[in-house]
């Protein structure tokens, strides 16, 4: 389907400022107390998310299993570019949703793994043991049901992995 804009003034002189369309405002803004409506809508959404959370442990188990599979694939492929991309994406996926699913420390560990993969200039030097430690830590947290922000063991584990990763990346950069 071909779209065509008829704005000859712009075509002739280049830059243009186009005033915002009001159609969306007119379509969905209604008289009423915006703050009260927002408060109610957000409360409804948080309640809906709470109801959905009965699925979260199963989802986390699936996602962490996929992370483990991506790690195994990457190892078998000697950390080829394609396999590393798969591992990065699996970790990145978990980073994006682990906190919502109730596992904020898994989020932190995946963020550390993503940084390790992303920041290392020479991927062949990726330390296998450190990759394993990240992936196994995430799987352990899920297996043990280490949820929330106040799990001391999960906190120490996430911090230690982050520190080791940072130290390693600094050594490589030096």
């Amino acid at each position: 389907m071909q779209a065509q804009r008829q704005d000859p003034a712009v075509e002739s002189t280049g830059n243009a400022v186009i005033k915002p369309q009001s159609a969306l405002r007119e379509k969905c803004l209604r008289p009423g107390d915006a703050d009260e409506a927002a408060e109610q809508a957000i409360a409804n959404a948080e309640q809906a998310l709470q109801q959905l959370s009965v699925n979260f442990d199963e989802w986390m188990a699936n996602e962490s299993a996929q992370l483990g599979e991506a790690r195994d694939t990457a190892k078998a492929a000697a950390f080829s570019e394609a396999a590393l991309t798969g591992l990065f994406q699996a970790a990145h996926n978990l980073k994006g949703q682990a906190t919502t699913l109730g596992y904020p420390f898994a989020d932190e560990i995946c963020a550390s793994l993503c940084r390790l993969i992303d920041k290392l200039p020479e991927k062949a030097t990726l330390p296998l043991i450190l990759v394993d430690q990240h992936v196994d830590a995430v799987r352990a947290l899920v297996r043990e049901g280490a949820k929330g922000n106040d799990n001391p063991k999960a906190s120490v584990l996430a911090k230690r992995l982050r520190d080791v990763t940072n130290d390693f990346l600094q050594q490589v950069a030096a």
């Binding site: 186009i18 927002a38 957000i42 989020d107």
Partner: peptide, 27 residues
């Protein structure tokens, strides 16, 4: 940024509806 929260998503939607920005066209 993920993780997504109800509040953050609502505020972004509210902003694009209530405060639409000018569009700019350059080369």
């Amino acid at each position: 940024c993920k993780p997504v929260s109800a509040t953050a998503l609502y505020r972004r939607i509210q902003n694009v509806i209530a405060n639409p920005r000018d569009f700019i066209r350059t080369k």
